[in-house]
Design a protein around this nucleic acid. Sequence first.
DNA 1: GACCCGATCAACCTTTCGGTTGATGCCGCT
DNA 2: AGCGGCATCAACCGAAAGGTTGATCGGGTC
Lengths: 232, 232
Amino acid sequence: MTDTPQTGDRAPEDDASGHDAPEGGRIRLLLADDHPVVRAGLRAVLETEPDFEVVADVATAEESVVLAARPGVDVVLMDLQFGGEMRGPQATAEITARDGAPRVLVLTTYDTDADILAAIEAGATGYLLKDAPPEELAAAVRTAAAGKSALAPAVALRLMDRMRTPAAALSRRETEVLQLVADGLSNAQISKRLFLSQATVKSHLVHIYTKLEVDSRTSAVAAATAQGLIRR
Amino acid sequence: MTDTPQTGDRAPEDDASGHDAPEGGRIRLLLADDHPVVRAGLRAVLETEPDFEVVADVATAEESVVLAARPGVDVVLMDLQFGGEMRGPQATAEITARDGAPRVLVLTTYDTDADILAAIEAGATGYLLKDAPPEELAAAVRTAAAGKSALAPAVALRLMDRMRTPAAALSRRETEVLQLVADGLSNAQISKRLFLSQATVKSHLVHIYTKLEVDSRTSAVAAATAQGLIRR
DNA sequence: GACCCGATCAACCTTTCGGTTGATGCCGCT
DNA sequence: AGCGGCATCAACCGAAAGGTTGATCGGGTC
């Protein structure tokens, strides 16, 4: 995607000295998820903790940006997939861009590389999976509220894998070509679509095969899909 | 997978005259979902209805089969995806196979053709999406308890589409082959995997292309994925 | 300026895939 | 018994894709 990885540029001394630190008081939460059932579940699970307070829950990413801008929120629990326009990563980026912004804890069903990296690049403090037990969830919220990063074990593992294998890093153009391959286009169709010669398309594909360590367009699509390099 | 499709052999007059009809009393629910948060959410949402009673919630498909076998359950709310071994459709089939079995209401995130059809073939009384509002959820539970089928609007639409377009109906073997294609295997690899000749694989593929109205393996995968005929 | 990398293209060759025709056996339905 | 759908296989041919070599060009970096 973007060519600037820029992992941890958040200053480590950038602690919870925002506009309203939660120390002493309760941790104030904002829930953002388009599933009413999940919102209700999070409320039920988190409100049993005496030091938590759910101040609002919203069904869209847009609303989460608006409400997170108001003081009185320490941690935002953010889904990645929304039915509407704005997605979780974009909302996360907008929320964390402000000074004294609340922490954003991403809570999603999937653990693909692309999702995880997008969330972290957007400034998420943590990444949790929805199958997490309530205790883990509560612990992650407290960790996030303290300004420390909270990653689910499965997510952490995947990140380690990613670091160990820097091979899978397609260029912008290569990703573009591969996406069209995944959509079922032939080399001829891709060349017309991108105003290229077939030779160029084949050249890109050869590079893609090398990087993904495969030897056909279908296996390239399978590998890239599995690694979350392309959508769907 | 298994070679016995056994579609809809449920007698249509098989109404709610099971071992314990819910009329008069409250509707007793069993929740099956591997996400603790979702279970809590369903509990919270459904227990606000005075005529509902959640008798148990389980995290695995296996447990749901065991508990659904005991009397005192009218409707099972069943997820399709479980982290463990058994999946929702199989559990649904085992539950509904018994006499006087409770109704099974499938509640999932996805609305792909394959999922919907598998659930209905397994004997599910309804199919809901997790982004459904609480009122819709409650209404569907009452509909299911009365023995009537309850489909989410989006699901119903998709089924209508399916009926109007009988083209997309791959055979078991064809689906199997196409799934391997989607996994990136070549014809030679598929033939070895399935103990077939390459001629047979090609034959299946030609039929697949005709049915899906495409002309290459990659576009077949794209089309089948879009229609939910294969997973991932 | 030298260098590397990404993007672009050409020519060539080998392998795989797509498409056709035709054939056999099995199963379910009429 | 006959029909049709499904699954299996063979042989053949043209087209598409895979693989190699080599080349040009522009944008960064050291």
